[in-house]
Design a protein around this nucleic acid. Structure first.
Lengths: 135, 135
DNA sequence: CCGAGTATACGAAGAGATTCGTTAGGACAT
DNA sequence: ATGTCCTAACGAATCTCTTCGTATACTCGG
């Protein structure tokens, strides 16, 4: 069976997200590479399990693959940012009644350390938002 | 069967989260009330489906119930804030490589409108964070 | 050519999530 | 007492997620 029509991007499951994280970090990779990397975190995770997931994800359109070589090479078909947006939106809708800023408050209030550059970046965004609203 | 030992709070599933949202909004409610409210959003959602979920959630420790009346009254056993913390942490770990501020940036950058009070609150938090780090 | 090693493909088991149909019991008006 | 209406309880079907075992096929050194 070939991949489905995918009008919208499919939400990755937890296990799929673990694999996507690796692909985003490693770039195009064989099943073996992904498996080895994942094994660092999760010992006893089978090779064929990872293979199966990549096949499923290919079918869902979450990854692409180059199969001209014997060992197929997989790469993400969705960007990290796109996925972050998607999941963040779902969290906001599901648990924060649609309020972005409530999520921001929640995330910040739990922080103990934030790098200065990030603080600055956040402030810059706030300034832009405020500017946009005052005009 | 009575509820399990629950050392840690169980992660609510999507469907369970929908019901929790209603309970947080409505306060203690009968199955019927919850069902009616949910029906506004999701037509064709069976009454016994909601009932079943509430029973499952009772078993998981996500809700409590008062069954002295014929129509049992359910209320949340987990707070909205607690659940928001839990889910936010999972999102941060799963999709943002553990970086809180990256989530904040993501959430803010998608925003078009943020209420002034919230902006102020966010700034206040930023100030506190910055102060804590400079000392 | 053959066997060891490494790949993919496939199917299926087991757990969890979601959704109801059906059953049975209480309340109450007739 | 009986039928109607509401309620909870239960079991089960279906779907999705997660994980492998097994089969099969390619590659390369001897």
């Amino acid at each position: 069976m070939k991949r489905k029509s995918e009008l919208r991007t499919v939400r990755p499951t937890n296990a799929e997200l673990n694999i996507l994280r690796m692909l985003w970090r490693l770039g195009p990779s064989t099943v073996r590479s992904v498996h080895e990397e994942l094994s660092r975190v999760d010992r006893n995770l089978g090779y064929t399990t990872v293979l199966k997931f990549l096949q499923i994800m290919l079918d869902k359109g979450l990854v692409k693959r180059e199969d001209s070589q014997r060992a197929h090479v997989y790469r993400p078909a969705v960007s990290r940012e796109q996925t972050q947006r998607q999941l963040t939106r779902q969290l906001i809708d599901g648990a924060f009644d649609g309020s972005r800023s409530q999520l921001v408050l929640q995330a910040l209030s739990g922080a103990d350390v934030v790098r200065p550059e990030e603080l600055a970046e956040i402030r810059a965004l706030l300034d832009r938002l405020q500017g946009a609203q005052n005009n």
